Simulated assay, not measured.
Amino acid sequence: MQEDYYLGAYWGPRKETALECAQRAVLFFHMLARCDPTFAQWYRGGRGAPRDLPGHPVRAEETEWEQLFLHGRNRTDLGKKVIEDLGFREHVWNAKKERTRVELHCGEYSPFGAGNTCLFYPPEEGPGRERILSAPVLAEVLTRVATAWDPDYAMASSTEMVRLIKKRKREVRVGWLTYLSRRLGTLPPLPAPVRIEPVGTLGWLLVLSPEPMTASNPEHVAFTARVRELLDRAGLIERPKPGSASE
């Protein structure tokens, strides 16, 4: 059975304006375009999109992304008033079929919100899926995500593996590829064949295997769980509860 892979980046409350989020988005999509040819152009939904295109083309420009984020603000059900501390949301994709999708939630600073995220979903089928779901490409994407959005952590994994590995509702998730910010603490020694690469001065990229880690492989599950346990002992897994003073 084919597993559903995704890449997710997560960070706590961070008050940023629509322009500041737009600057991060522009940097992210410029860097993302270097990871794979299919990442050169992105589209959004809305009425009046050209029928021959996947949607409205989105330019990697600050003014355009600022407007998209302002349009994507959370609002109250009654009166449609903007909820400032819940930040901005937008999602884009790159094709009609065999699409990669990116969902962004940024600028949230409510201690009780869902949290800021950058979610990257590769194609569910087609020839591009295998290429994108390779360690070299996903490592590049994960590095770009970390550089642009400065999350607390990020990982690439299958949803099935995440369900098997995580033990708490709120915790740093460990995947086939995992990024950890230096804000979380000090990285402990990890067993081979884990490869550790610095991401500038921001954090570390952990590659657990050169091949995809699958939930259907007991050895993959056991090894991922072992790495998670070592990181947990080092204090890198537990996350503060919403509203706590340390978040």
Rank of each mutant, 00 (worst) to 15 (best):
E238N: 10
D52H: 15
Y109Q: 04
L164V: 15
I237K: 01
G107A: 10
T201V: 11
R101S: 04
R233N: 07
V102L: 14
R34C: 10
R131P: 00
R183H: 03
F69D: 01
P189F: 06
T214L: 13
E130F: 07
Y153P: 04
A225L: 01
Q41F: 15
K166H: 14
E219K: 12
T143R: 11
G113W: 11
P212V: 10
R14E: 14
A95P: 00
Y10I: 08
R99Y: 12
Q41I: 15
E125P: 00
A154V: 02
G203M: 01
T147S: 10
E229C: 09
E130S: 14
S246C: 08
A139L: 03
A60I: 03
T100D: 00
A192G: 02
P123F: 03
D85Q: 13
R99C: 12
E130P: 04
N116C: 13
E219Q: 11
E197V: 15
A154Y: 04
R75V: 15
L190D: 06
Y109R: 04
D52W: 11
K97S: 12
L70V: 12
E219V: 10
S209A: 09
V174N: 09
T186F: 06
G12I: 00
G87I: 02
L138K: 01
I196T: 13
A60E: 02
E64C: 02
M161I: 04
G55I: 13
V221K: 07
K81P: 00
L27V: 06
E125L: 07
E140V: 07
P151G: 13
D77E: 13
T117K: 08
